[in-house]
Design a protein around this nucleic acid. Structure first.
Length: 724
DNA sequence: AGCACGCCGACT
DNA sequence: GTCGGCGTGCTC
């Protein structure tokens, strides 16, 4: 009897056996539709067996093996299995995360679209001179002449709206489809600096074996150029390249750059925002070895790539690589694991590497490649603190910052005010009785959004009207306290009535369309002063931005989270990097009550090494990562006591395992205890040795699964947590 | 996670 | 007398 062992997307850490008389060894890795209770589900055949321990009345036949898509390859399954084990998450659920949504269903998957390769014909070469110069048809032909065979998508990336021109040219026989070469050519772009070429040589010297590189370079030092040349070298060996980037918002411009650079290459861009069909199509094309480059966000780390030759992770320190629900994997770490399994080099790039990565580079486990200069001759911005301890502030803005804004305006250059707080004011309160605008579902305050005339909870989304008087004592004189982007925006409008002020935060850039419109308006030079949160810090070169003002940074200086300084440093470095051009000096002004704080001193000196070294010394002293390895068990229930009780039981269970070198702390309520009517608690487990922690977790989590949580309590495990 | 079964309160 | 609340248990 042939038994198929199937992993299903259910929160149970086991496989399910089905009778599968027609299953062949080739079907391992295939998706299969199976009966499961009263319903049908799609799972993945993980192994075949000749028997089962299951009583025969329980065993049911598999419904159908989904052979329309190729089986998921063994190396891919090994990667997903390793993730499932490392993050202590059931294999079936991990597979479901790694697969695009369309492949989690039984319906047939649409064929990936072709993206044909075009070349110019003799007729086209002749016709070129007759075409009106500057017309799309003419420019398309020129592109083909310059670049050789070109993918339709590359042409569309280089020349927007070229799709119709392509159809015409093809119909008239001026272009024709070409057969792809084994390795697509890249457009020539000489590397500018010797340290860039040194980096490229080091990386390409490692092609064909595992090595992690940390590419450390300030904003504008030409990291992307190093990635692209390294990718070119990998493609030249007929390999595939995988490039991970933090945000969806950043992918379109990078995608265009990559497509234009590799006009003959088959490139797919994978992220959660795209249509399901296209995502599944990219996944399958990659699995079939038909793609040369995959560019994507964290989920793209699970793209099957039979000829994988190089992995690049840009902005490796970025928090968005860590998934914050379900299986809480870190795509950067999974990428390193994948590079090891596939025996290929991986490049982690950053201006402010995570301390984990930097420590590996210091210890020699990763190879450090430095790009110390800005490539385009632009100097680093000057960074200065404005001491606000005795300063008179106007709506949170100091005199020196206002003066700098004024003179930047006069020079017709752009300014950016960075403030990590949305809304008008973080709280509305009554000075008479002490009432504050608390959220009824969360242990947090409702934020005043004057733009929409509502109080809104940033944790659960609850909304209510703005009371005219205190709801408890009737006092008419209630005030907003603190300030967010909206308040700073209106203060700036009032202070500089002729300046064009634009606010960019999650509220004003809520959809990709809106955010695109905002960016375009900035690029057209229609904005003098930008006010915004961290979405402004990432990517995007602003044409005439020379002044960056930072408000309220001190808040993270005193945060309880030991990673707060690391994040603040990276964020300020990133936002500061927005200012200055080749021809325009950039300036960063930080309003602070701690102008002598080492973090700001390091920032002013552009001294990442100094900052990171000091932080690492502190971490080592305090026994924090990367010198300690953490896992957090979290529980949620309608009452805190039930969450704590569950964790208490779990802690006792863990204690009985008596694992050496593992410390189990007492359960504590989470910092934001109540969220959306759910009360949460957590339990920290640590060990100075990762393997010890891993083996403890394996035994412990198995027991927690076996015990089954009491009704109404939900739990989850976070290995290598980023937030506490 | 679903989706059943199962045993106790307010409705046609 | 039924509809439906969510507690408990199972899914190959």
């Amino acid at each position: 009897m042939v038994i198929a062992r199937v992993a299903l997307n259910v929160p149970l850490d086991k496989l399910f056996d089905y009778e599968a008389s027609d299953a062949q060894p080739d079907d391992i890795g295939c998706r299969a539709e199976v009966p499961f209770g009263r319903r049908h589900m799609v799972g993945v055949i993980v192994e075949l067996a000749s028997g089962t321990d299951l009583p025969s009345d329980k065993l049911r036949p598999i419904r159908r093996i989904l052979r329309d898509t190729p089986p998921l390859p063994a190396d891919w399954r090994a990667l997903v299995l390793a993730c499932s084990r490392y993050y202590q998450h059931p294999l079936g659920e991990t597979l479901a995360v790694a697969l695009p949504p369309a492949l989690r269903r039984a319906e047939a998957v649409p064929k990936p679209n072709a993206d044909p390769l075009f070349r110019i014909t003799e007729a086209g070469t002749e016709a070129r001179t007759r075409l009106r110069p500057g017309s799309l048809a003419s420019r398309s032909l020129s592109f083909l002449v310059e670049r050789g065979p070109v993918r339709a998508s590359a042409l569309k990336a280089a020349l927007p709206k070229a799709a119709a021109a392509l159809r015409h040219l093809s119909a008239k026989g001026l272009i024709e489809t070409a057969t792809p070469a084994a390795s697509p050519a890249a457009a020539q772009a000489p590397v500018a600096l010797p340290e860039q070429s040194a980096a490229v040589e080091a990386i390409s010297g490692s092609l064909g074996r595992y090595q992690t590189f940390l590419l450390h370079g300030v904003t504008g030092s030409g990291k992307t150029e190093v990635y692209l040349v390294a990718i070119e070298r990998a493609l030249a060996r007929a390999s595939q390249a995988l490039m991970l980037v933090p945000e969806i918002a950043l992918t379109p411009q990078l995608e265009n750059r990559v497509r234009t650079r590799f006009p003959g290459a088959r490139i797919a861009c994978l992220h959660s925002g795209m249509a399901e069909g296209a995502r599944a199509g990219g996944f399958i094309a990659a699995a079939n070895g038909e793609l040369d480059i995959v560019l994507g966000t964290r989920l793209a780390v699970f793209t099957p790539l039979p000829r994988l030759g190089l992995i690049v992770v840009d902005e490796e320190q970025d928090p968005s690589f860590k998934q914050q629900d379900g299986i809480r994997y870190c795509a950067r770490d999974v990428a390193v694991l994948r590079a090891q399994q596939a025996a290929v080099p991986i490049v982690l790039g950053s201006a402010t590497p995570s301390l984990e990565t930097f420590q590996h580079a210091r210890s020699g486990r990763y190879r450090l490649l430095e790009l110390p200069r800005r490539a385009l001759a632009k100097s680093l911005p000057s960074v200065r603190c404005i001491d606000t301890r005795n300063a008179k502030l106007q709506e949170g803005l100091s005199e020196p910052l206002l003066a700098a804004l004024e003179s930047t305006l006069r020079r017709a250059e752009q300014s950016l005010i960075f403030l990590n707080r949305r809304g008008y004011a973080p709280v509305l309160a009554c000075p008479a009785c002490g009432w504050v605008s608390g959220c009824e579902h969360c242990s947090a305050n409702m934020v005043l959004h004057l733009a929409d005339r509502v109080l809104r909870c940033h944790h659960c989304g609850a909304q209510s009207g703005v009371p005219a008087s205190c709801p408890t004592c009737g006092n008419q004189d209630i005030h907003p306290y603190g300030r967010g982007t909206q308040r700073v925006e209106s203060a700036l409008r009032e202070r500089f009535p002729t300046a064009r002020v634009l606010r960019v935060d999650r509220d004003s850039a809520s959809t990709p369309g809106k955010s695109q419109a905002l960016l375009e308006s900035i690029h057209r030079g229609e904005v003098d002063v930008l006010v915004g949160t961290q979405i402004l810090a990432k990517g995007h070169d602003f044409p005439r931005l020379t002044l960056v003002g930072v408000l309220n940074a001190d808040a993270s200086l005193h945060a309880v989270d030991f990673r707060a300084p690391e994040r603040l440093f990276a964020q300020l470095m990133q936002v500061g990097g927005r200012s200055g051009r080749a021809d325009l000096e950039g300036e960063v002004l930080i309003q602070t009550e701690h102008p002598d704080h080492p973090l700001y001193t390091a920032l002013a000196g552009h001294d990442y090494h100094g900052f990171a070294t000091a932080q690492l010394a502190e971490r080592q002293q305090a026994g924090f990562p990367p010198f300690m390895f953490h896992a957090i068990l979290r529980a949620e229930a309608s009452q805190l006591a039930r969450s704590l009780e569950f964790l208490q039981t779990a802690a006792a269970l863990g204690g009985q395992l008596g694992q050496a070198a593992v410390t189990i702390y007492d359960p504590v309520p989470m910092r934001l205890t109540r969220r959306a009517r759910v009360e949460r608690a957590q339990l920290l487990v640590e060990s100075p040795q990762r393997p010890r922690l891993q083996s403890f977790l394996r035994a412990w989590i198995a027991q927690i699964y076996a015990q089954r949580a009491p009704a109404g309590v939900r739990w989850s495990i976070d290995v290598d947590p980023h937030e506490f």
